[in-house]
Amino acid sequence: MRFTQVQRQMAAALMQRLGPGDRLARRSATGHDVDVAAIIKPNSLLSARERLEIYSRAYWFRLLDAIRDDFPGLAAVLGQRAFEGLARAYLADCPSRSYTLRDLGSRLARWLAAHPEYGARNPRLAIDMARLEWAHIVAFDGPAGKVLDPEHLLELKPGLRLGLQPYISLLELQYPVDEMRVAINTSGHAPRRVVDQTRIHLAVHRAGLSVYYRRLTLPESRLLRSLRAGWPVEEAIGRCFRDSSGESEEMLAKLRAWFAAWSEFGWLTVREANGERSRP
C-alpha cells in the first residue's frame, strides 16, 4: 500500500463519527468495515483498534472542546447536557472541512435553524445566540479591506460607492443576545430570568484588538446593508429613509454622525470594483 493511501485511510478512520460509548465505530459513515489492521499494528498491550481509538477519540474530543470554546453563550442558554448533544449532532452532520478549527462553527446557526429540536425550550433564542457568536469569531480575526483614507475622498461625487469591512456582521435578531452574551462572559451562566423577545439590529465589529456589539437603528442598519450591497451613497440614503417620518434636520444630523462614526471606526472601505451592485 502506498504511503498516501495509508494516510488517507488513517485520516478517514480517525475522523469517522465515534460509535456508542465513544468507541471507534466498526463501520465507516459509508457503511464499509474499517480495516484497522491494514494501517496500524497491534502491540503486546493494545490491539490495533485500541491504538487507533486513542487518536480518534482525541480528535473528536478536541472538536467538541473547540465548539464549546467558541459558543459559550449558546452552551449557557441550552445547558451543558443539551449543548453537548447539539455539538455532537452538528459535528456529525457538518464535520470539519477546514485546516483550522476556527471555521468549525461556521455552519452552526444555519444547521440549528434546520434542526430546532436541538434548541431546547427556545430554539429562536438559541439560533440568535449562535449567529451572534459566529459573528463574534468573524469580527475577532476576519480579514480587513482597505480602509477609506482622506486621499480617497478627493473625488467625492453622488455616484460614489463604498464598501463595508468584511469582518463586520450586520444582524437582525429577535432577542437581546448581545447583553446576554456579555453577562455570560462576566458571570459564566445565563440570566435566570426569562428573556423578553426584543427585535434588535446589531453590528458586530472590532476596534483595535477588541470585539464590540453595537446596536443600530433600523435606518442605520438599512443604510449599511445598502452600502455593502453596492448601492451608490445617494441611493443608499434614499432607501434608508424611505419609511421615515422624522424631520429633515434630524435626519441630516443622523447621517452626518453615522458617516463620521463609521469612517472613524474604519468600517468603510474602498470599493475595488466601483461599478455594479452585488445584489439588487
Binding site: 477609506l148 445617494e234 421615515s244 417620518s245 435626519m251 453615522w258 462614526a261
Partner: peptide
Amino acid sequence: MKLSNNSLALAAAFAGLLGGT
C-alpha cells in the same frame, strides 16, 4: 423620505465622511 433635497443628505453624509476619516 422627508428630506427636501437629496443633495443636502449627500452633503451631510460627505461632511461626516470627511470629518471621521
